[in-house]
Design a binder for these strands. Structure first.
Length: 602
RNA sequence: GCGCCCGUAGCCCAGUGGAUAAGGCAUCAGCCUCCGAAGCUGAAAAUCGCUGGUUCGAUUCCAGUCGGGCGUACCA
């Protein structure tokens, strides 16, 4: 609708120039906005104000010219009727304030949206601003050394929603999880499990501080120990093997084989086996938890695979060839400073080991090699110091900086009844994402994570999230969906319509009965959904969808409380059923983008 | 020290060049014989951290400053 208005203004400006009323035919980059106040019309443009210096004319004078040209320009704009000056789309044009041109649309301009929403259904709101461009969204990517916590949950909700919104806006999106399954933290994981295992079989060991302290390490050690000790029995009775516990591996038998003689191996080999087993186990837990949180990835990408395929070395060699890597003090340094970083960074240490940064360079190079036009990483705010160096890697590999975005998600404070919940990774005592989802539910958790901009820190209060009250916005919106379902079902029972899907059959021709201010307001909000989604996609800000859903829900509740849908007048009832069915569809589409369900009943 | 994010009503937060700064919580006063009260209506509550600058116009952009969070490895 904004584009329609914009074209009307442009046509009018051109007409004015042809008539000699305006000195210049330059069309500045005007804004068409929906004003905050209803008495400023449905749409407003600042055309006259920003044209003042170009036309060398007072803004209000320009506005007058535009207004009269729009009203004259019958062919391009709208038909006139005898009385009000205009009919069709525009009901009235006003000039206000310093030179705003305000457009008041006729109700008939809005009714087609209801038909459109019903026709498009789950596709209403979809656009093609992405033009099929290939985009990768990488998020969560937590190390498989422990379960996901609440911070990962926020990143998961944001990354998933951004991916959904981009896909809905015409981008070809792939969601990816990068598994840091290489390097020291995995060895530390293996060592942690191995030492716990040794403790289990009676060895006196001081468990080191730099090992993972969490209980889950002991659980895994116990699991391995059970497998090892039960093995002879299990071999005799293969059916008794609890393969469910081994579901994380493709080949439970291989694991048993390896585990069987674990204590016969050298400590280094045993640690490797423990590392592999534990990482697989933990990663499977992560996958399960994300699945329960409603997040599914298109691809799980292994860091180790970059080493196995030689891509880390390839990337280093390429950078050396481009002269952006040099040697100093026995180490290899990437000249990130010349790309805007504070200082140069090491990629290969003087002991010959590559740094994490080296595989990150290879990974980000590889992403573009796979054909993505654009790459988006979702990171916790505590990693912001890495943006400059990854940017450097992107540029040094010949890509443009605009092709790479980092979404920095600020940290989450977990509260219970207003009091901070103690979280210590060091001691291994923290509330996991799974526990949170189990306690408050997937929908409430996701909705709260997406309720505000990720630029701001977030207090997540478990007690509030659990409440089924207005404190908890998810129910406010879901309630609309359930409520409408109930009303439409009632209409079916009463025989007004045959089935919920049939509302438009008899209702489409009765939409002109929708004349109440609350009804027009609702339709206008519905009509703006596509623009909101586009804005959300361009800004990479999913909370715009949240804000929109709250606005729509509020408008609906207000309408519901003031007007009966099912009335004595059949035509009016049909029209209103069409309207609220549209609301239901848009609520559904919006919630779906955020990964929140739209229940029929609550 | 340097870098990033945030400072909007008692509390939480939206808005990010425009016309009277939007919601929610909490407070107060109302609304269910009536389609789902997980709802609605009304009242009260904001010098948009502070100081300059750019602009016809700044909560929005720029500079500085104060306050809070996070980060600043040949760690991952």
């Amino acid at each position: 609708m904004k584009n329609v208005i914009k074209n009307i203004v442009i046509n009018a400006a051109q007409l004015a120039f042809q008539k000699g009323l305006l000195q210049s035919d330059v069309i500045p980059d005007m804004e068409i906005e929906a004003p905050r106040h209803e008495n400023h019309g449905d749409f407003s443009t600042n055309f006259a104000m920003i044209s003042a210096s170009i036309q060398k004319m007072a803004p209000r004078k320009i506005a007058e010219i535009i207004k009269s040209c729009i009203e004259d320009n019958i062919n391009n704009c709208y038909p006139k009727d005898g009385n009000s000056g205009c009919s069709g789309i525009i009901a009235k044009i006003e000039i206000a304030g310093p030179g705003f041109i305000n457009f008041f649309l006729a109700p008939t301009a809005w009714y087609p949206f209801i038909q459109k929403i019903h026709n498009q259904g789950k596709d209403f709101g979809r656009s093609n601003i992405g033009h099929g461009k290939k985009v990768q969204v990488e998020f969560v990517s937590a190390n498989p050394t422990g379960p996901l916590h609440i911070g990962h949950g926020r990143g998961a909700a944001v990354g998933d929603a951004v991916g959904n919104i981009l896909a809905f806006s015409g981008f070809d999106v792939q969601k990816e999880y990068y598994i840091n399954d290489s390097g020291r933290q995995i060895r530390t994981l293996g060592r942690s499990v191995w030492l716990r295992l040794c403790q289990l079989v009676g060895k006196e060991i001081d468990f080191p501080e730099d090992c993972y302290q969490g209980d889950y390490i002991q659980d895994i050690a116990k699991e391995i120990n059970d497998l090892v000790t039960k093995k002879p029995f299990d071999l005799a009775n293969p059916e008794s093997v609890n393969t469910a516990e081994l579901s994380n591996t493709d080949d439970a038998e291989t694991h048993l084989k390896m585990l069987g003689n674990l204590f016969d191996k050298t400590e280094a080999e045993a640690i490797d086996i423990c590392a592999k087993y534990a990482a697989d186990k933990i990663l499977q837990g992560i996958k399960d938890d994300l699945y329960d949180f409603g997040v599914e990835f298109d691809r799980w990408f292994s860091e180790q695979s970059l080493y196995d395929s030689g891509k880390v070395q390839d990337a280093i060699k390429k950078f050396q060839a481009r002269d952006v890597i040099y040697e100093k003090d026995g180490a290899l340094w990437f000249k990130t400073e010349s790309f805007g970083d504070e200082k140069d960074r090491v990629v290969v240490r003087n002991n010959g080991l590559t740094t994490y940064f080296a595989s990150d360079i290879a990974y980000h190079t590889e992403k573009f090699d796979r054909g993505f036009d654009r790459v988006i990483d979702v990171w916790g705010a505590d990693h912001h110091g890495y943006i400059n160096r990854i940017n450097a890697a992107i540029e040094a590999s010949g890509r443009k900086r605009e092709q790479f975005d980092v979404i920095l998600v600020q940290l989450v404070n977990l509260l219970r009844g207003g009091q901070p919940v103690a979280m210590s990774t060091r001691s291994g005592e923290f509330v996991t994402l799974k526990e949170i989802v189990d306690e408050v539910g997937k929908d409430a958790a996701r909705f709260i994570f997406l309720s505000r901009s990720y630029d701001s820190g977030l207090d997540f209060d478990l007690e509030v999230a659990k409440q089924q009250t207005a404190d908890n916005p998810v129910y406010y919106v879901q309630y609309v969906h359930a409520r409408i379902t109930g009303i439409v079902a009632k209409a079916c029972e009463q025989g007004v319509i045959l089935a919920p899907e049939d509302v438009m059959v008899k209702g489409a021709s009765n939409l002109e009965h929708l004349v109440e201010p609350e009804e027009l307001k609702l339709i206008k909000i519905l009509a703006s959904f596509t623009e909101v989604v586009e804005k959300s996609a361009l800004a990479l800000h999913p909370h715009l969808i949240f804000t929109y859903l709250m606005l729509l829900a509020s408008a609906f509740h207000g309408y519901y409380n003031k007007h009966k849908v099912i009335t004595e007048h059949q035509d009016l009832t049909l029209a209103r059923l069409c309207l609220i069915s549209s609301v239901k569809k848009v609520i559904h589409n919006g919630l779906t983008l955020l990964g929140v369900s739209a229940p029929e009943r609550m």
